[in-house]
Write a protein that binds this DNA or RNA. Structure first.
Length: 477
RNA sequence: CCGGGUGUGGCGAAGUUUGGUAUCGCGCUUGAAUGGGGUUCAAGAGGCCGCAGGUUCGACUCCUGUCACUCGGACCA
């Protein structure tokens, strides 16, 4: 490989991870900028990834019984104001509409930063009896938050997401739903995106504005930083009380229902990039790759090559997302191009292969070449895609384990935070003051309190008092 | 929001110190050869130097303002 050329194209991860990220996003043609500050244009290739994410998640939601709806883009100020914690959390970053059709509005409206308030208002209309419950709703939309600094996918002022909003008869049902959706997200990340995640609960400091409990899946990026990849919130009956949502229960008394909400956004594409990518560019997990296999004819001018390549495409496209590159760029150029774009498998077919009734299939993640008989092509591709997915997952998991440390004293956690990028497992007494101090002096925030972890000691890493909660600490995007 | 950096054809840069006809590489177009890791040669096209003021006979270059991107921090679901 010509390393010199490669260095000209993108910054290496090791040299500057942030620049590597922006370079990959740009070179893989995922996004573009416009004259709208802090917002991104999703180009066809970037949008195609989102469409695959969306289709996969939507299937999972429907399997749980969720129904899609559409809520308005705007929220009147009075509606946003109804739940105190919620408005306090979001007010600083909403965009306000003050004029319409050239006239000043009597009441200003914000562009939705999230739609809890709209769902609540609607639920108040449609929920009368326990027979109306539960309602399991979801919407695919974009939301706006007036961010100060932005980065493609990771933090933009407008972004695409789904927000699920459900309402239940009992606290128990709502709690179950919150955790069920967290599992849906975790399964999606691991099975479709090959991203290992840690499931856990957020501390009160990190919890969603208005929630009684926030659960999260946290993933570790290549540089050791954490990315919150999906969240699921339990609201108790707080929103129901604020919005006066009541139903007649089985015992003929008026009761408040219990609610949840959960979301995953285009940010997850940032997670894919920073989990699997390498110095040659993007590496896409097969389940969401817009093209799973690219066919590259070699010596295409020789008789029979183009025909054979087209024949293979026709044969494969009922089972895989296949593309053929018939441009007259050199094969080497094409190899580099599709590596940049993260296409999982590359199929090379040339005169020598045709003679032997075979082709060459190359994996994106490790560049391993396999000569595959054309008689067994479908099965081999299936196998290679599966192996590649497993390989990506395993590699990401190994890296996370290698970059996860434990600390039992303040000095230790501070030293680790400074010198060893990654996650730090340490006990916490539950005091906000300790959490604040760790942020202030060690520069780490609590990512989550994992569900399935053994205690690493019995006293708080910060104050030394008795502690039972294990927290995963880290620096976050 | 605070601090640093950068804005020059599609992309990446030089030129700015010391004001005087807009440069280079890649890409693009056309033609030919090549083709198993970013091929080669030839001929072309393409830029009011981020934007707005100011200084000057003259501004990519100096001054003021402003916008965007970017890196770090703060804030953030």
């Amino acid at each position: 490989m010509n390393d010199k050329k490669l260095v000209e194209e993108i910054t290496s991860m090791e040299d500057d991870f942030s620049r590597w990220y922006t370079d990959v996003v740009k070179k893989a043609e995922l996004t573009d900028y416009s004259s709208v500050r802090g917002c991104m244009i999703l180009r066809p290739y970037g949008y195609a990834i989102w469409e695959n994410v969306q289709a996969d998640l939507d299937r999972r939601f429907k399997a749980c019984g969720h129904e899609n709806v559409m809520m308005p883009l705007f929220i009147p100020e009075s509606l946003l104001q109804k739940e105190k914690d919620h408005v306090e959390g979001f007010a600083p970053e909403v965009a306000w509409i003050t004029h319409g059709g050239g006239e000043k509005l009597t009441e200003r409206m914000c562009v939705r930063p999230t739609s809890e308030t709209l769902f609540c208002e609607h639920y108040a209309h449609v929920v009368q009896s326990y027979r109306d419950l539960p309602k399991l709703y979801n919407q695919w939309c974009s939301v706006v938050r007036w961010e100060k600094t932005t980065r493609p996918f990771l933090r933009t002022m407008e972004f695409l997401w789904q927000e699920g909003h459900t309402i239940h008869e009992t606290e128990e049902d709502a709690t179950k739903e919150t955790l069920r959706m967290l599992d849906v997200y975790a399964d999606f990340c691991e099975q479709s995106l090959a991203i290992p995640v840690i499931k856990g609960r957020k501390t009160e400091k990190e919890q969603f504005a208005g929630a009684k409990a926030t659960y999260t899946i946290e993933a570790m990026m290549h540089d050791g930083k954490a990315l919150q990849s999906g969240t699921s919130h339990f609201f108790g009956d707080g929103f129901a009380r604020a919005f006066d949502i009541k139903f007649t229960g089985r015992d003929n008394t008026l009761q408040y229902p219990f609610q949840t909400s959960w979301g995953m956004s285009t940010r997850i594409i940032g997670a894919i990039i920073m989990t699997h990518g390498d110095d040659s560019g993007l590496v896409l997990p097969p389940a969401v790759a817009p093209t799973q296999l690219v066919i590259i004819p070699v010596a295409a001018h020789k008789p029979g090559v183009t025909e054979k390549a087209r024949e293979l495409k026709a044969r494969l496209e009922s089972r895989f997302r296949v593309k053929i590159d018939e441009t007259d760029n050199s094969p080497g150029w094409k190899f580099a191009e599709y590596e940049m774009k993260g296409v999982p498998l590359r199929l090379e077919i040339g005169p020598r292969d045709i003679e032997k009734n075979q082709c060459v299939v190359v994996r994106r993640d490790n560049r391993e070449k396999t000569f595959v008989s054309l008689d067994d092509l479908e099965n081999e591709i299936d196998r290679l895609l599966l192996e590649l997915h497993d390989g990506l997952y395993k590699k990401a998991l190994e890296r996370r384990e290698k970059m996860t440390y434990t600390a039992t004293s303040f000095e230790e956690i501070k030293e680790l935070a400074e010198n060893s990028p990654g996650f730090i497992k340490a006990m916490w007494c539950g005091d906000r003051a300790c959490e604040d101090r760790l942020k202030e002096e060690a520069g780490v925030t609590s990512r989550c309190m994992p569900f399935s972890e053994q205690p690493v000691s019995d006293c708080c890493v910060c104050c030394g008092k008795k502690a039972e909660k294990l927290v995963v600490w880290g620096k976050a995007y």
